[in-house]
């Protein structure tokens, strides 16, 4: 079946000049891991804040032969993931998949798939606030200077104040990381459970923030370290349960409220990982 790119839009929606601008930014982002390259975002037919940065980065990378997977919160069937997948089916005519291992490009919001990525894959993150220092210093002019001078004391002070107050670093997601020993960067708001997967990843990781007009990147095998202190080392954590559907004890879990009596259950956030496991179990049992 040949799915033609619909309407009169250019391949992957964006015009060629826009894609060239994005592609140049992506190359510079790969050359300086963790540094946020400014680009001139376009208004997309979906709202700012709903993945326009990821969509523009994906559009700049997609080839007609790609097989695209889109996840939001780890799931392929959440409404915004469905909407973005349909968009690319329509404007780029690319094949889509929900299976992590079959995908060549994966656009994600807030999760890294549980299934380890491969060399020939590209993971595109939707990023709301690309500046890890933004909530410590709202001014772009200031944070830009801090990155230039490698002045990350403020971040360490914040993390240390957490420890003083709470006994541990009170950050559960968007835990800041150091890319290749030079730039502090945000991994986009993924749960800290996912942080270790950022480092030494065989796939290219691209981060697009549309409204904030920044692209940053991690080439494959980049060393990515979650910020911590010697006496308070970083720990990836998750709910201490097993998935009630597939039984996995290793995957990140969503808590689902099942009734109004306080009943709840835990299931995998990664829907593909979960269904692959439970399908295998069923065929094994049969």
């Amino acid at each position: 079946m040949n799915v033609a790119s619909a309407d009169n839009y250019n391949f992957a929606y964006l015009d060629e000049q826009t894609k060239r601008m994005l592609r140049r930014a992506i190359l510079k982002a790969l050359a300086v891991p963790g540094y946020q390259v400014p680009f001139a975002p376009r208004e997309m037919p979906m709202p700012y804040g709903w993945g326009t940065g990821g969509v523009q980065v994906s559009a700049a990378c997609l080839v007609p032969e790609d097989r695209l997977k889109v996840i939001d919160q780890g799931a392929d069937d959440t409404t915004n993931a469905v909407s973005i997948r349909k968009f690319f089916q329509r404007v780029a005519g690319v094949a889509t998949t929900e299976t992590t291992t079959e995908a060549t490009v994966i656009q994600t919001r807030h999760r890294i798939p549980e299934t380890p990525l491969k060399e020939d894959q590209i993971l595109v993150y939707q990023v709301p606030i690309p500046e890890p220092l933004r909530f410590l210093e709202p001014r772009e002019t200031e944070t830009r200077r801090m990155h230039a001078l490698e002045e990350y004391g403020l971040m360490h002070v914040k993390l240390y104040e957490d420890i003083a107050r709470h006994g541990e670093i009170a950050t559960a997601y968007a835990w800041p990381v150091m890319a290749e020993g030079r730039y502090v960067m945000t991994p986009s708001p993924i749960p800290k459970f996912d942080n270790p997967k950022l480092s030494d990843c065989p796939a290219i990781q691209l981060f697009g923030a549309g409204r904030e007009a920044r692209i940053h990147a991690l080439p494959p095998w980049t060393k990515v370290v979650s910020l911590d202190f010697e006496d308070h080392p970083f720990q990836a954590s998750k709910a201490d349960h097993a998935c009630e559907i597939c039984g996995s004890c290793e995957s990140y879990l969503d808590e689902v409220i099942t009734d109004d009596q306080g009943g709840r259950m835990f299931v995998c956030s990664d829907t593909d990982f979960c269904s692959t496991r439970s399908n295998a179990q069923q065929s094994g049992a049969a």
């Binding site: 250019n10 391949f11 992957a12 060629e16 894609k19 060239r20 592609r23 992506i26 190359l27 790969l30 700049a60 990378c61 997609l62 080839v63 007609p64 290219i204």
Partner: peptide, 12 residues
């Protein structure tokens, strides 16, 4: 559009 896209993937 298509040739640039394929070439860019290799360039990237």
């Amino acid at each position: 559009p298509q040739q640039s896209a394929r070439a860019f993937r290799a360039i990237m």
